[in-house]
Simulated scan of single mutants.
Amino acid sequence: MHYEAIIFDLDNTLLNFELCERQAILGALEDCGVSLDLNGVSETIFLQVFETYNSKYWRQRETFSPSELIEMSYQSTFAQLDIQTDKISNLGESYWHIFNHSGAMEPDVNEVLTVLACSYRLAVITNGFVSAQLPRIQAAGIEHFFEEVVVSEAISFAKPSPEIFHYALSKLNLTPAEVLYIGDSLKHDYAGATQVKIDFCYYNRKNQSLPQEVQPKFIISELLELLELVN
Results as ranks from 00 to 15, higher is better:
D82Y: 03
V41Y: 05
A132Y: 03
G103Y: 02
S102P: 10
Q75K: 15
D86I: 09
E62G: 10
I182P: 07
V124P: 08
E148R: 13
V214C: 10
L174S: 04
L172K: 07
W96Q: 15
K159D: 10
Y203M: 05
R59A: 12
E43P: 14
G33W: 01
S73A: 15
I164Q: 08
S131I: 10
F50G: 08
L186E: 04
F145E: 05
A139T: 08
I155V: 15
A139R: 08
P66H: 05
Q48L: 08
P107N: 04
A177P: 00
S161C: 10
P216I: 09
Y95Q: 06
M1K: 13
Y53F: 15
L223G: 13
Y3G: 10
L14M: 06
E222A: 14
S152H: 07
F165V: 06
A79T: 14
V214R: 02
K87M: 04
Y120A: 07
I155S: 05
E21L: 08
K217I: 04
T114I: 02
I83A: 06
N100H: 04
E163V: 03
Q215V: 14
N207A: 14
T13N: 03
D86W: 01
A158L: 00
I6H: 09
L174K: 11
T77N: 07
S102R: 00
N204L: 07
H188F: 11
L134E: 12
G33P: 09
P211L: 12
E71Y: 00
A5W: 00
L19G: 00
S42I: 09
